[in-house]
Nucleic acid binder design. Structure first.
Length: 454
RNA sequence: GAGAGUGUAGCUCAGUCGGUUAGAGCAUCGGUUUGUGGUACCGAGGGUCGUGGGUUCGAGCCCCAUCAUUCUCCCCA
């Protein structure tokens, strides 16, 4: 019995054309990472659940793909285990899970190798991750993350360099972009300054939606979350912080006078800006945006977010600084700052704006076509010679009508074919066909190689 | 976790009020052309209408269940 094959939900195939385009993005990003001194790292697809569980909150634990133990796991289960419900049962039948992101495996790696690693340690990592949530537009159960992080230094030079890496990647890909920068300490300071200390998480989540739902709705949501009318009134001036980045700094300083954390945040941002200036980075494309929050709670310092202009799509890159990356594995005191490029969204942007280079799809340059066994044998040394000259070449492996062989060349977008029949065997002059123009020439094999390499 | 939609040929989709043998385009294969693709013309193959039940003289169409899948909210990349 055969049944129709199908893809597992939320997963995708990447055919040859898509792979060429994806590799273009990966190669561009990798080149920039390496130029800034980041080194490659790969970790296993699966990790022990003890490494993954409890790192992403309750909801994150639910979204982990768990791997069933091998062997007869059922014999270890008793009726009481079944009665206790699936959460406890899971721990008895599953000990491993697919990684949920690249940051936690990275933290595990750093902890396990802390004595061998040169600190600060700069690594980049491009691998798929898996999440068991419901797929929808632009969201998958398997997708790639493309991360670069530095651990083991608090220097704000790292933040400045991240800004430069973003600029270089976007410029290489020809994407017009807007980079927003904030600092998590400013958000903390803000909640202190408006008299809602300790509520910065709720404040951050709500304020992050500002450009999506507008100021009024944000206020409503904050009110629902228990912010007092007074706090909301104090918050209002924040929305009118406008002007150049330097002007924003000045206004912010007035607003956050009363908050130590807030002042620290401003100080960090100013220092970071000073480094950027020293590097020669201009403020073009870069915007200080104190309403940028980036949902996640683990950021503690700078926060970055990049959006593509000219196209209606969410953020394509994000990152920030987080303290105590390795704390959950018992090694406190290692701070990190990182950036993650959203490859799938960048792909969509390049596709929509037609920014992929177009001469990439060609893989084979030359196909040998023939009329039978004897002619095919004649091509084999020529095929080898072509490859030795660096020409991507292949021979049609079956005996088939020339029509079918040319059709194969056409579909594979092979630009040149050599046709060999009895005439060619006799004369030694081979027929070269240029598939784009349709022109044909009778040439010696050396002339053919020369022409193809033109 | 909550809500909405869609399942008909390999793919994208028509299918009228419930009515005879379920269609098209693309793709595949063959031919026009035994040595010429991308164009054209001719022809062929390909279906348990997601699955199971129900209503009916009669169901691709109506009802129930179930599975799959897409989208929205939550959350995130």
């Amino acid at each position: 019995m055969s049944s129709k094959p199908s893809l597992a939900r939320g997963t995708r195939d990447f055919g040859p054309e898509k792979m060429v385009k994806r590799n273009y993005i990966f190669d561009t990003i990798k080149a920039v990472f390496q130029r800034f001194g980041f080194q490659p790292l790969e970790t296993p697809s699966m990790e022990n659940l003890s490494v993954l569980m409890g790192k992403y909150g309750d909801e994150g634990d639910q979204l982990l793909f768990k791997i069933l133990n091998s062997g007869n796991f059922s014999e270890k289960i008793s009726q009481t285990d079944l009665d206790e419900g699936y959460k406890k049962l899971t721990t008895k039948i599953s000990e491993k899970g697919l990684r949920y992101d690249l940051t936690v495996p990275f933290a595990r790696y750093v902890v396990m190798n802390r004595n061998e690693l040169p600190l600060p340690f700069k690594r980049y990592q491009i691998q798929p991750v898996w999440r068991a949530d419901r797929p929808q537009k632009g969201r998958y159960r398997e997708f790639y993350q493309c991360d670069a992080d530095v651990v083991g230094t608090d220097s704000l030079i790292c933040e400045a360099e991240i800004v430069m890496m973003i600029q270089e990647v976007m410029q290489s890909l020809n994407i017009n972009f807007n980079l927003k920068i904030n600092n998590r300490k400013i958000l903390s300071g803000l909640s202190e300054a408006i008299g809602a200390a300790g509520q910065e998480a709720a404040l951050a989540v709500a304020i992050d939606k500002l450009d999506k739902i507008g100021q009024e709705k944000v206020m409503e949501e904050l009110a629902e979350r228990g912010f007092s009318a007074e706090a909301l009134a104090n918050l209002t001036p924040v929305f009118s912080i406008t002007g150049s980045n330097q002007e924003k700094f000045t206004k912010l300083e007035e607003l956050l006078q009363t908050s130590e954390v807030g002042k620290k945040g401003i100080e960090e941002l100013r220092e970071m800006w000073n480094y950027m200036t020293a590097f020669g980075v201009t403020d073009e494309n870069i915007e200080l945006d104190i309403t940028l929050a980036r949902g996640l709670s683990y950021y503690t310092g700078a926060i970055f977010e990049v959006k593509a202009l000219d196209v209606q799509i969410g953020s394509i890159t994000g990152g920030g600084r987080y303290d105590n990356l390795t704390g959950t594995f018992g090694v406190p005191g290692l701070s990190g700052v990182g950036i993650s490029f959203g490859v799938d969204r960048i792909y969509d942007v390049l596709e929509e704006l037609n920014l992929f280079p177009n001469n990439q799809a060609v893989t084979t340059k030359l196909l040998f076509c023939h009329f039978g066994k004897e002619e095919q044998n004649y091509t084999l040394p020529l095929l080898r010679a072509a490859r030795e000259r660096g020409i991507n070449a292949e021979v049609f492996p079956d005996n088939a009508k020339i029509k079918k062989q040319l059709d194969y060349a056409d579909r594979k977008k092979i630009p040149f074919v050599v046709i060999i029949g009895s005439d060619e065997l006799q004369s030694g002059l081979l027929t070269l066909k240029d598939m784009t123009s349709g022109e044909q020439f009778k040439l010696s094999i050396d002339d053919i190689f020369a022409k193809i390499n033109e």
